[in-house]
């Protein structure tokens, strides 16, 4: 099977006062096209660092990241990213935010407006095109960030706890919306979270990480048909499995996969 994204023996060292420390150790994952992969782990396990390296914002100490057969060296619009913090450009309206990547690419006025409108509609924000970010709620801001990341038609969507700073109700709604968008666009999604509930509700597969050094403990296929019910027995079984794995991680050293 051909892989969309391949992470091979990725290691990331950080230098501290006590010398070199491994933040990530020998991580290998393959992601298939249109797969929804959640990466879960305790805080400090380097899951965000992993995602940032896929984005090209951080550089691995060794190992390779290969997207569509090409090695990732630096950031590029072929990898859309949604950050945990609100990252809209406050001086740009919703429309101008979504157009940003296209503007940098040099897409003409009319064409980029059309594309932007399409994605604004996809995230359900039509009518808000000319609003500034300060006029939007937290959930709406993240919708715009998703539309903006999708507008350049990236090969993969990277999401770093994108719903971490919105309230629980909005979070549920955004998760459903994200699944709808994922189905419509057939994007490959790499989604970092610390929430077991979120991972089980969203993912095709969950990669569990341990902390210090961060390494991959287990990959779990979530083979529950969608739409999933948050309170169903199967969902709860997976939640329990994941919680077990995570609590094991806290008391045990790293095992290679």
């Amino acid at each position: 099977m051909n892989h969309k994204l391949e992470i091979r023996n990725l290691t990331k060292m950080f230098s501290t006062e006590e010398g070199e420390m491994a933040a990530l150790e020998d991580i290998s994952i393959e992601v298939t096209p249109a797969e929804f992969l959640c990466i879960i782990g305790p805080s400090g396990c380097g899951k965000t660092t992993l995602l940032r390296m896929v984005a090209g914002l951080d550089h691995p100490s060794s190992g390779k990241i290969i997207l569509d057969g090409k090695e990732v060296k630096r950031p590029s619009p072929d990898r859309g990213m949604v950050f945990q913090e609100f990252s809209l450009f406050p001086w740009r309206t919703v429309l101008k935010n979504v157009e940003f990547g296209l503007e940098i690419k040099g897409v003409g006025d009319k064409a980029r407006r059309e594309i932007a409108e399409k994605y604004i509609e996809l995230v359900g924000l039509q009518g808000f095109e000319n609003h500034y970010p300060y006029e939007l709620s937290g959930g709406m801001k993240q919708r715009v960030a998703i539309a903006r990341a999708l507008a350049t038609e990236p090969a993969i969507l990277l999401m770093d706890e994108p719903f971490g700073s919105v309230d629980a109700q909005t979070r549920n709604i955004l998760q459903e919306e994200l699944l709808r968008i994922w189905k419509r666009t057939e994007k490959t999604i790499l989604f970092v979270t610390h929430s077991v509930d979120e991972a089980v509700y969203l993912a095709d597969r969950v990669a569990v990480m341990s902390s210090r050094p961060g390494c991959l403990v287990k990959c779990l296929d979530i083979d529950i048909p969608r739409p999933r019910k948050r309170t169903s027995v199967e969902v709860n079984e997976f939640r329990e499995k994941l919680l077990m794995l995570l609590s094991l991680e806290r008391s045990k050293a790293c095992i290679s996969v």
Binding site: A55, R74, S76, M81, S87, T152
Partner: peptide
């Protein structure tokens, strides 16, 4: 920093 990184990811290299 997040705005600069957002820019990078969207092509401002």
């Amino acid at each position: 920093k997040v705005l600069v990184e957002t820019g990078k990811v969207l092509g401002c290299i």
